[in-house]
């Protein structure tokens, strides 16, 4: 990976981070339960073009991994260090889906699907961290605010049916994101010849 590529990935990952975090908060503002269902569906769709354009511009192996890794580093700078581990795994999966170096610059959709796969892994963290890490200590740290009854209610949310729903939503968002990212790239960033109307 040359310096040109690293700087480009860094710049695009900042945009991706701001969007991912912002849209994550937006989803969260609807409350715990909707955000558990939706998880990172919105960021997966909206941030896909940023990732696809970045990969096509850089066109080097490792771009996807570095993008996700930097995302994790930025979360760590905000204080959420465990996300680095999730992002690293997401980055590795994205690289595996994209495959060979040529796919970075080819006209196929591998880059888009790579992002979708990475974001699918990333979206699982919301499920785990928010519920297991979060609720676990709530009753201990805020005994007057959080009752055991309520903690139980949330624990019971994770029935097999609900987990399947969450996963299906994440997969659909990944597929939509892959198509949307590729569409934006082809329309505005590729060298495709367009027909003149004049």
């Amino acid at each position: 990976m040359n310096l040109k590529g690293i700087v480009k990935i860094a710049v695009f990952s900042v945009i991706g981070f701001v969007l991912t975090m912002g849209l994550g908060f937006l989803t969260g503002s609807f409350g715990m339960v909707p955000s558990l269902y939706l998880s990172s569906a919105l960021p997966t769709i909206i941030v896909a073009p940023v990732f696809v354009i970045m990969c096509k511009q850089v066109a080097q192996r490792g771009a996807a991994f570095l993008y996700f890794l930097l995302l994790g580093v930025f979360y760590a700078l905000m204080g959420m260090w465990p996300v680095i581990v999730v992002c690293a795994i997401a980055g590795i999966l994205a690289e595996l889906v994209i495959g060979k170096k040529e796919n970075y610059s080819d006209k196929n959709m591998k880059v888009g699907f790579g992002f979708g796969a990475g974001m699918f892994v990333y979206s699982l963290h919301a499920m785990y961290f928010a519920f297991v890490f979060g609720v676990e200590g709530l009753t201990k740290q805020f005994p007057k605010m959080f009752t055991t009854d309520y903690a139980t209610f949330l624990y019971n949310f994770y029935s097999p049916k609900n987990i399947v729903i969450c996963l299906i939503i994440a997969i659909i968002a990944s597929i939509i994101g892959a198509y949307f990212g590729t569409y934006i790239y082809n329309k505005f960033f590729s060298d495709r010849k367009k027909k003149s109307v004049l």
């Binding site: 609807f30 715990m32 959420m80 979060g134 609720v135």
Partner: peptide, 14 residues
């Protein structure tokens, strides 16, 4: 309401 409540509590927690 409960789900918003829990999310805010998690923000406070961290």
């Amino acid at each position: 309401v409960g789900s918003i409540y829990t999310l805010l509590l998690i923000i406070i927690k961290f």
